[in-house]
Amino acid sequence: MVGCMLIHGFTGAPYEVEPLAEYFKNQTNWILSVPTLPGHGEEETLQGVSYNQWIATAETSLKELMEKCDTVYLIGFSMGGVLAGYLATKYQVDKLVLLSAAIHYIHPVQMIKDISVMITDLRKGRLLQNELFNRYSKKLKTTPVLASIEFRKLVQRLKPSFKRVSVPTIILQGKLDGMVPYKTAHTIYHLIDSDQKQVCIMEKSKHLICHGEDQDDVIDKVFHFLTN
């Protein structure tokens, strides 16, 4: 039996990887695991949650999936990509997919461009129609400062483990990502130890790579990688 675990990002929820999960559900008979990390989800309550809890939840979910399946694929988005890279060095997974993996974060040039567009939309009275504004303004208001510190701690602790990644890996990154610099994909490529690895830069995608203009291409590339 084939199992696939998909891990969402910081301040996010399973919806961030939902397009992939839905595609797999419709096209395969795989057992899917899409855990919600502590403090995340629709009722976000990150106050007092530590990064060790995020690691523990992801680890427990993976072990439960491995008990049911003899082939396991691991997919991680943003902070979930950091978790996935770490877990791929600790457990025997078969393939690894890294989506906008946040071993680096905040792309200043693209962020300035995005803010510029928001300012233009504000002046024209259409800020509430700006997708990025709607998506991130709530997060900025509700995310505790200590939770952001925990996120940085997680990255600092787990990033070194990428040097030990040896499983077949595909790295997908949006060229227009304002959170994770797109060159991070190449950094990861050179960092990991796998003999089978590839990078795909999605020219029209921002950070939420599964929901961008390249969505169909992202799904195709991931599915082709996992099934070949």
Rank of each mutant, 00 (worst) to 15 (best):
T187N: 05
L65H: 04
T143N: 07
K95N: 04
G125P: 05
Q27T: 13
T227K: 03
S137M: 11
K159H: 06
F162P: 05
L74T: 02
D114F: 01
E213K: 11
I170M: 08
L226D: 03
D217G: 01
E64Y: 01
Q173H: 07
T227Q: 06
C210F: 05
G81A: 09
R164E: 15
V93D: 05
M202G: 04
D216V: 08
I170H: 07
D114G: 02
K95H: 07
L226Q: 00
T89F: 05
D70Q: 02
W30M: 00
K153C: 12
A88L: 10
I112T: 13
Y136V: 03
L128R: 08
T57S: 12
L140M: 14
A21G: 04
S100V: 00
V97K: 01
H190E: 15
K183W: 09
E131P: 07
L83K: 11
Q196W: 02
F77D: 00
V165D: 09
T169P: 10
L128D: 08
N29S: 13
Y15K: 08
A147G: 11
V93C: 04
P35H: 02
H211Y: 11
E22Y: 03
V180F: 04
I219L: 15
V218A: 07
V167K: 07
G41D: 06
T36W: 12
L46N: 10
L99V: 12
K113F: 09
M5E: 02
E44G: 10
L158D: 08
Q110C: 06
I209V: 10
L154F: 08
L208S: 10
L154Y: 03
C200N: 09
G39A: 09
E59H: 02
E22S: 12
A102L: 11
G39F: 05
P38N: 13
G174Y: 03
P160Q: 12
H107W: 05
P38R: 01
K113N: 13
L83W: 00
P108T: 12
S161P: 01
H190N: 15
E42S: 12
A13S: 15
Q27H: 14
C200M: 12
M202P: 07
K68Q: 15
I55H: 08
N134R: 14
M5N: 01
I209K: 06
Q47G: 06
Y136E: 15
T187A: 11
I219A: 05
M118K: 14
E18Q: 14
Y15D: 14
A58D: 12
Q196V: 13
V34M: 11
L74E: 10
I75M: 00
L46T: 10
L146S: 15
S116R: 12
S194Q: 04
F10D: 08
I209Q: 02
A21Y: 03
V49W: 08
M1Y: 03
P14A: 12
L20Q: 09
I192P: 04
I119D: 07
K197V: 02
H104N: 15
M5D: 02
N26K: 14
L140Y: 14
P181Q: 13
K141F: 09
E67I: 06
I170E: 05
P14L: 11
L20G: 01
E42P: 02
Q110V: 13
